[in-house]
Simulated assay, not measured.
Amino acid sequence: MSQRRVWLVTGASSGFGQAVSEVALSQGETVVATARKPTDLDDLAAQYPDNILVVKCDVTKPDDVLSAFASATQKYGRVDVVFNNAGCAIVGEIEATPEDAARALFDVNFWGAVAVSNEAVRVFRDANPKNVGGRLLNVSSGLGFGGGPILGIYSASKHAVEGFTESLRLELNPAWNIKVSIIGPGAFKTSAHTTGTTVFPVPKAYEGEGLPSEAVRQWFADGSGDKP
């Protein structure tokens, strides 16, 4: 049997991070599951006690990112796949989004993704056994391809992730055997779009029935959770 791969998943406690962790674990892979609140992963850790390492990691804190990778390499000797997924969302017209909130979102969605990507590349190249390399999966969004009403700041952060990831891919020496991919899912209701979302009130100038922003706000507000 081939050696099981070691995954490092950011934002593993919910949404795509949780789903990918569960699938990898169910296939006998090893997962280093990171979250800001490790206790959110207690159920998953109890289900797969031999295949999972839970690590606290806030991607906006560089020391947390370094510590997560260090924990992975110390326990398993390598990291094969990084699912760079941690994120959050803002719902609100661009005019109505406070600058501090927009900057905080970029700290998670963009700068957090950059920090994880940089350490992933270093580990793949310098810490993994020779010629093993690795695969970096940076999670973007369909909104990384084009904008959407009341999602302008979120969309901008994902455009930034796409440009960064494509540039990073082109910089890497092929001899390092590092593969980099962008994942751009469409509309799924994960916690990034429910409990992980900050919603700002509609400015009076943007009120009106039938506006595109109204339908998007309803999509976030209806709580269906499993339908686009």
Rank of each mutant, 00 (worst) to 15 (best):
T60E: 12
I153C: 12
L44V: 14
S67E: 04
S181V: 01
Y206R: 14
A19T: 15
G184M: 00
S67W: 07
G77N: 09
D222Y: 01
P228E: 13
N138A: 05
T10H: 02
R4D: 07
K179Y: 07
Q27P: 04
N109W: 08
Q27I: 11
D50P: 05
C57Y: 08
G148N: 05
P149H: 03
V180E: 02
S71L: 03
S167M: 06
A115V: 05
G186A: 02
G134M: 06
L151M: 09
S13M: 12
G184F: 01
F200D: 02
L137Y: 03
I150W: 03
V81K: 10
D42G: 11
L211T: 11
T197A: 14
G146E: 04
P201W: 07
V202D: 04
G112P: 10
F110L: 12
S224C: 06
V82R: 06
A187H: 11
V202A: 05
N138C: 05
Q218Y: 07
V9C: 04
A24I: 13
V121W: 08
Q218N: 10
C57Q: 09
L53K: 11
T60M: 10
V161T: 09
P149F: 08
I90K: 02
K189R: 13
N128F: 11
H193G: 14
E29G: 06
S2M: 12
E22A: 15
T198G: 12
A192Q: 15
V79L: 07
A46R: 09
L8N: 06
E29T: 08
D58M: 14
R169K: 08
G28Y: 01
E207C: 14
L66G: 11
N173K: 02
D126P: 13
F220T: 13
E209G: 11
Y206Q: 15
L8H: 04
A215N: 00
E214Q: 10
A127F: 06
V180Y: 02
F110I: 09
I178M: 06
I52Y: 09
W111V: 09
N128R: 14
L151I: 07
T97M: 06
L170V: 05
R36K: 14
A68H: 06
L41I: 12
V55G: 00
V139G: 01
S71Q: 02
V32D: 01
N118W: 01
D42M: 12
S117D: 05
A192G: 15
L53F: 03
K227M: 13
T30S: 09
N84C: 08
A104K: 12
V31H: 05
A113E: 00
V31T: 03
L53A: 02
P98H: 03
L41E: 10
V82H: 00
Q27W: 00
P212G: 08
P38M: 04
R122Q: 10
A89K: 10
A156V: 07
L151A: 06
A156L: 10
E209Y: 14
A68G: 05
K179D: 01
P201T: 00
P49V: 01
A46Q: 13
L136W: 06
V32E: 00
G144K: 05
R125D: 04
T73E: 00
A45Q: 10
L137S: 02
V108L: 05
H193L: 15
A187S: 13
D100A: 11
V114L: 04
F220S: 10
G134V: 06
A72E: 09
K75N: 05
L25G: 06
D42S: 14
P203L: 04
Q27K: 13
S181T: 01
L25W: 06
S21Y: 09
S67C: 08
M1V: 15
V55I: 02
K189V: 15
